[in-house]
Amino acid sequence: MNRNVILTCAVTGAGDTVAKSPHVPVTPKQIAEAAIEAAKAGASVAHLHVRDPETGAISHSLDHFREVVERIREADTDIVINLTAGGGGDWIPDAADPTRGGPNTDIQTPAERHAPVDELLPELCTLDCGSLNFGDMVYVNPADWLREHARLVQAAGVKPELECFDLGHVWFARQLQQEGLLDGDPLFQLCLGIPWGAEADTETMLAMRNKLPANANWAAFGIGRQQMPMVAQAVLLGGHARVGLEDNLYLEKGVLATNGQLVERARTLIENLGVRAMTPAETRAHLGLRDPNSGRIVEKVVGGVA
């Protein structure tokens, strides 16, 4: 069991959820406020996407990312910032010509995905470790793109969170480590329950955990109704956890949640297991992250929290 847990809140995501809940933040101001709300509820890390303020759809706007990050950094409440760098991989074959992307296809190069990270230098950013049948579309992330992206993240001095949606993604992340494209102890996020990747159950989480490098830090999440069960399971298996409206809209059946409520529910759950959530400062020290004020890497704490 992990006694000191990094609790991440993924506050908005990029999915088609805005019409399903009034609590999903859309504008940069709302997204920043959601991250601060999560921090006050006990989250260690805020995982951030941005959306088009007019439509609520996915956005890659550097201006939106900049506003969100600046608002969080100017706030009195501390939280570790984790920017998505996995957008721009959605491929939907055109019905008339399947060699071309159809409506809602959204592809970015590794350099385009990396641009907000390179300018804003968050403590963490995501690196999605492979392609996947993601629901009814294909998420496209070829191996050479991943190598290029890993080099960009490494050069920026930002720690990648290695998002793995299936066992093959864990395998490729280990390959990146062997090729020297990951610095320090790697940080994995096991993403469970997305059709058609890894299932959200104990057997799958355990199988993925058992394939991680010996020096890995890791977390896991489940989507929908599996969100809280996967929080408990990750902690019991020695990992960290993630909640938030990116992955689940409900506090219980028929009751829409806020990000703060989901963090509070997860924090209560782990505390009832005799576990505590790390503070943002402890998280930086545990993972060896960049201090947002000094710009220096916080010395990693081995064998405990700061």
Score class of each variant (00 low, 15 high):
R147F: 00
P103R: 15
R66G: 08
L127P: 08
A43C: 11
I79G: 04
G88C: 03
D90L: 07
D76R: 13
L120H: 11
S131W: 02
A85E: 02
L48N: 02
L146N: 06
G135S: 04
V117Y: 03
A75V: 05
H114P: 08
L124D: 06
D97W: 10
V80W: 01
E148G: 03
G89W: 05
L132W: 10
T109W: 15
V138S: 06
G130A: 11
Y139T: 00
P98W: 07
D97F: 13
A41W: 10
A150M: 03
E74I: 02
L121V: 15
D128F: 06
T126G: 04
G101H: 11
D76L: 08
N82I: 05
L132N: 06
H64E: 05
P93C: 01
V50E: 04
I81V: 10
H64M: 00
H114L: 12
F134I: 00
L132T: 12
A115C: 10
R113F: 07
P122I: 06
I107E: 09
E148Y: 02
P93V: 00
A150D: 00
P122E: 12
D118M: 02
D144I: 03
R113W: 02
L146E: 05
S44N: 06
Q108G: 08
E70G: 04
R51G: 04
I92M: 13
D78Q: 15
V69M: 14
G130N: 13
P103V: 06
P98E: 08
W91F: 14
S131M: 07
R147E: 06
N82Y: 03
S44K: 08
G56E: 02
A75Y: 05
D97M: 02
R66Q: 11
P110W: 01
D136G: 06
S44V: 09
M137I: 13
I81H: 11
Y139P: 00
H49Q: 08
I79D: 10
A143Y: 13
E54F: 03
T109G: 12
E74L: 02
I79R: 03
N141C: 14
I58N: 10
E67N: 01
I81S: 12
A111C: 00
L62E: 06
E70F: 00
R100L: 11
D128Q: 08
N141I: 00
A111Q: 14
A57Q: 01
P93M: 02
P93W: 02
G88D: 01
C129H: 08
R73V: 03
R71P: 02
Y139R: 08
A43R: 04
V50G: 05
E70L: 05
A46C: 14
T105G: 09
L146F: 04
D76K: 14
G42R: 11
